[in-house]
């Protein structure tokens, strides 16, 4: 028996919004430590890794490890049927071929349940090595989303150059070029507005704007985003999900032909 409850549907809606543009389907691996989803986008350029810890759920029971393949478009449709302040309970029997989403209004007077067929997904699991990154940038997630949106107008690719002075985002194409420089925040009044750079070595890498923009769909989940970069390895774009866990996106840098 699997049962996981959150007192508020909002967070689950935001999580689905953060993945559904990249992934059509995904396998939710459930164990007593929580729920994990790892999946590549259709073109195998980026990887999404979602971790939700069991101890942060309002109720969590997982008697046996369970892998539930879900159509994320359908799951998003079902979650649209929940009000933001509804309690959400996700339930499945062991070896079941369906999962049930139950929504309960705050006054307990409306209870709805939606059953969804599970899919048998033959997805590759990738082993992500522990990496000491040359540069780790923490910055406001809204600012990152804004920069990705603005620079995508100029080119398919964006160069991110990080030094200890700051981080520079650049794009150039037929229309012209754009550069946005952010300096490290000197005094931090509000932590969520800070730009903080931890640098071992400067890094310059090129990434596809399309994927970066897809990652910024997670912006409503967290005020800050963390970018971890090293030469010749995938960028990690991480959004923390309050005390529940995190969503990480991995994107391989573009290379010279």
């Amino acid at each position: 028996m699997f049962e996981a409850r959150l007192m508020n549907a909002t967070i689950l809606k935001k999580i689905l919004d953060a993945v559904k543009d990249l992934l059509n389907e995904g396998t939710f691996d459930c164990s007593d430590s929580g729920i994990q989803l790892q999946a590549m986008d259709n073109s195998h350029v980026s990887l999404v890794s979602l971790t939700l810890r069991s101890d942060s759920f309002d109720k969590f029971r997982c008697d046996r490890n369970l892998s539930m393949g879900m159509n994320l478009g359908t799951m998003a449709k079902i979650l649209k049927c929940a009000n933001n302040d509804d309690t959400v309970t996700i339930k499945a029997q062991d070896n079941a071929d369906t999962v049930t989403f139950m929504f309960e209004s705050q006054n307990h007077e409306k209870v709805s349940d939606y059953e969804m067929k599970l899919m048998n997904l033959d997805q590759e699991h990738l082993g992500i090595p522990d990496t000491d990154y040359s540069c780790v940038v923490r910055m406001p997630s809204m600012e990152f989303a804004r920069i990705c949106r603005d620079l995508a107008q100029f080119s398919e690719s964006m160069v991110i150059c990080c030094t200890k002075e700051g981080v520079k985002f650049s794009a150039s194409g037929d229309l012209g070029s754009a550069n946005v420089k952010l300096a490290q925040t000197s005094n931090v009044d509000k932590e969520e507005e800070a730009v903080i750079i931890e640098m071992q070595e400067p890094v310059t890498l090129t990434f596809a704007c399309r994927y970066l923009n897809a990652f910024t769909k997670a912006t409503p989940l967290c005020n800050q985003v963390q970018l971890s970069m090293s030469a010749d390895v995938p960028l990690v774009v991480e959004y923390r999900i309050s005390d529940l866990g995190h969503i990480r996106y991995y994107l391989a840098p573009k290379i010279e032909e």
Binding site: V45, E124, H125, G127, S157, Y250, A252, K254, I255, E257
Partner: peptide, 13 residues
């Protein structure tokens, strides 16, 4: 520039 697949960086488990 070319876009490599993420699978060329992470091993299949």
């Amino acid at each position: 520039m070319t876009q490599p697949s993420i699978t060329s960086f992470f091993n299949t488990r």
